[in-house]
Design a protein around this nucleic acid. Structure first.
Length: 743
DNA sequence: GACCTGCTGCGGGGTG
């Protein structure tokens, strides 16, 4: 116990906390509350308005929210006051339960974790006396509505606050839309407005965050933004040149090693600079995580030094992931994780020295999030090492290779990062797939519902604005056609037979899809999974969990692959599609190529590659030419993001130009004359959004989200376009390209 | 040629 006591500038906020909570704070030896904690007390105690607390990871956001929340619950005495905390991860719920339990012990406030791994008996206990703090996932909340709909009003009646942790992880996603809908339904069941508190370390646009937390009334959201200390950042971008691919791979016995040459050179460098400290390596795919973990482990073994490199990705079993997390946290010996976005989220792994990024990284926002793990100790800089592979050029090299697209993208993204820019989340998505789920869920909750009240609940008053009444009717009729819902003589909507089946099944509660997976089993222990689409056969050698295996048996029905250790192997394919690049990134890439200014953070090879790319840019005259012809192919340099390029491709196909592909910084059109292309682009420059919608073909490929199959075609196109396409970008790009294709 | 997250109720059998 310390003699000094926490105090505030006006010395009053702390005094407002419940005496037992004040004692708890003293017992922790805190000499003062953190900025965010201090500032959150009054607004939360008033309990009228919504609040976002944005502060760095270690700044005590959880306490900022819960010191005043628990004060109010404790003051309510015997009444059944309740606060609900929601989180995107079970692991986070378990973490928070530990912290809150300790704080609540003396207050005699129960803290109840509720997710798929929690026993029925604990859930039953809560259901009998719903009071205290409930820690729950959105999926479990969904399950409560579906399975215990009639109890919802009783359960939620006394909820005083809802806390949404990791708010940034929800904004703009399917799951985030589901969460908004659940919060809205909770207030409807409780017949009162429930103040919402959002927590996050990495919110960029506060207006977007406020609009997410309280749709339709962002001005009722107060903001507490705790300024982060100005962190020193050190960056190096390295270039690697891969030898030219041999024309006849059949007669190239060293083909594989040649292709991997640059990757092994990167592994060597990582081995030399990362050993002896804690670091994170992000190679952008699970397959490459396997490759680098294996390569680095073998180097340690051949040098007879302890292995310091551990794999971490979503297809590895929980126990293997926990082993890696434990190695990072332990602190007694150095550990580096080779990982995917799994270690970008809020799991506590301590501070790391370096973040290594192999290839450009999926987005600037993501790199920024990853960097938040480095340089967390006072006086230590954050260190970013970027590794980039480019191919040796031949006379058949693509524009993408000639312009060194990958290296230039890394440079552009780091320049944007240094300027403080990153991609805003797409808040304009209609998420009609999730609306289908929510309609079925409310019908199950209430045992039937009428169309009018559903429209009011979801569209007029809820989070699915932007849908007209006729469109909503069309959607309901579509659900009827698929036997998801049916209507009785009074007009009441009920679940159809298919609807009953799907709502009753255990994978109804998540808003996102999941595929079947192979279980990879070694001596009765599951070490991880592979997507059902990846080819599996007996005798197959593979690298998995950073080690080498041989598949000895495959059980087709049970989806089990048994493996034993084996010296051979290649990393398996996990599938996936290309990441979407933003307009601003592509435009920054152009300015990296168009200017001659020195980039300060490049190594020698990267410098030479950039100089070469700039020469190509000048030789191709790309500062004024945006349409290049080579043989039968026409390249359209839009220098725009994928939502724009993809929209152009789909609209062009709708106009009959079928051989067109999005190549990244340009589109490539084959076998169509420049005149035909000119006419099509002229059309695109003049059409309206509604025309574009009509032109969209290839509807099959637009089914990406869980319930898209149940949407009528026109609504599917609308939902897809709102998430993935930019018509306004396509129109602007077409206007520019029209002049480039004029003869 | 990216990534990630989540899950009920019931019946059968064992234990106290």
């Amino acid at each position: 116990m310390t003699s000094s006591r926490p105090s505030s500038s006006d010395d009053s906020s702390f005094d407002l906390l419940h005496p037992s909570i004040q004692r708890w704070v003293w017992s922790k030896g805190w000499t003062s509350l953190r900025d965010a904690q201090e500032r959150a007390i009054k607004p939360i105690l008033e309990g009228q308005r919504d609040l976002i607390i944005a502060a760095a990871t270690a700044a005590g956001k959880t306490e900022a929210a819960f010191l005043p929340i628990l004060t109010r619950i404790a003051n309510a005495g015997e009444e059944s006051a309740l606060a609900i905390y929601t989180s995107p991860l079970k692991a986070l719920i378990n973490d928070q339960w530990g912290r809150l339990e300790q704080l609540c012990e003396s207050l005699e406030i129960p803290v109840i974790p509720w997710h798929g791994d929690i026993s029925q008996s604990r859930k039953q206990r809560f259901l009998r006396h719903p009071r205290g703090v409930l820690l729950i996932t959105p999926e479990s909340l969904e399950a409560i509505f579906v399975r215990r709909g009639s109890e919802a009003p009783r359960l939620f009646a006394e909820v005083m606050y809802v806390v949404v942790d990791e708010l940034h992880a929800f904004i703009g996603t399917e799951r985030g839309k589901q969460m908004q809908s659940l919060l809205h339904r909770m207030e409807h069941a409780a017949t009162k407005r429930i103040p919402r508190i959002g927590l996050s370390a990495t919110l960029g646009d506060m207006n977007l965050a406020a609009a997410y937390l309280r749709p339709g009334s962002p001005s009722s959201v107060d903001l507490i933004v705790s300024k982060a200390g100005n962190q020193d950042l050190r960056v190096q971008v390295r270039g690697y040149l891969s030898p030219a691919v041999i024309e006849d791979p059949e007669n190239d016995s060293e083909g594989e090693d040649r292709l991997l040459g640059a990757e092994y050179a990167i592994a060597d460098h990582l081995y030399n600079v990362l050993r002896g400290s804690n670091n994170l390596v992000f190679p952008n795919s699970r397959k490459k995580v396997e490759f680098y973990t294996d390569a680095l482990r073998r180097k340690c073994e051949s040098d007879s030094v302890p292995v310091e490199f551990w794999p971490h990705h979503g297809c590895l079993s929980r126990s293997i992931r926990e082993e890696t997390e434990k190695a990072l946290k332990a602190g007694d010996r150095p550990a580096t994780a080779v990982c995917t976005t799994t270690l970008e989220l809020g799991i506590d792994i301590g501070a790391v020295k370096t973040v290594a990024q192999i290839g450009p990284g999926p987005s600037v926002a993501s790199i920024r999030q990853r960097l938040g793990r480095s340089g967390r100790r006072p006086g230590e800089p954050a260190i970013l090492r970027s590794y980039n592979i480019e191919q040796s050029l031949t006379d058949r090299s693509s524009f993408s290779d000639r312009l060194r697209e990958s290296l230039v993208q890394s440079i552009a993204m780091i320049r944007l990062l240094l300027r403080g820019w990153y991609e805003p989340p797409n808040a304009a998505g209609l998420h009609l797939s999730t609306l289908v789920q929510q309609i079925l869920s409310v019908i199950a909750e209430r045992g039937g519902a009428h169309a009018g009240p559903l429209y009011r609940l979801f569209v007029l008053e809820g989070p699915f604005g932007g849908l007209t009444q006729p469109e909503f009717g069309e959607l309901l009729r579509g659900l009827g056609l698929k036997d998801l819902i049916t209507q009785d003589r009074t007009g009441l909507l009920l679940l159809g037979q298919t609807g009953e089946q799907l709502v009753g099944s255990h994978d109804f509660y998540a808003a996102f899809t999941s595929e079947d997976e192979w279980q990879i089993v070694c001596q009765g222990q599951t070490i991880g999974t592979l997507p059902i689409s990846s080819p599996i056969f007996v005798g197959m050698r593979l690298i998995f969990a950073g080690r080498r295996w041989l598949a000895t048996s495959v059980e087709d029905e049970a989806l089990i692959v048994c493996v034993v250790a084996d010296p051979g192997g290649m990393p398996p394919s996990f599938g996936g599609s290309r990441a979407s690049t933003h307009d601003v990134v592509r435009s920054e890439m152009r300015s990296v190529l168009a200017t001659a200014d020195q980039v300060g953070f490049l190594d020698q090879t990267a410098n030479a590659l950039l100089a070469e790319a700039r020469r190509q840019y000048a030789d191709l005259n790309l500062s004024s030419e945006i349409v290049l012809r080579s043989g039968e192919a026409i390249s359209l340099f839009t220098w725009r993001g994928d939502p724009t390029n993809d929209a152009l491709v789909l609209i062009l196909r709708g106009l009959g130009i079928e051989r067109v592909e999005n190549e990244g910084i340009y589109l490539i059109v084959e076998k169509y004359g420049i005149d035909r292309l000119h006419d099509a682009l002229t059309d695109i420059a003049e059409l309206t959004d509604v025309d574009y919608m009509r032109l969209l073909t290839d509807v099959f490929n637009m089914r990406r989200s869980k319930w898209d199959w149940a949407l009528p075609d026109s609504l599917l196109k609308q939902s897809f376009a709102s998430l993935h396409l930019s018509f306004s970008g396509a129109r602007t790009a077409a206007r520019e390209l029209v002049s480039g294709t004029r003869r």
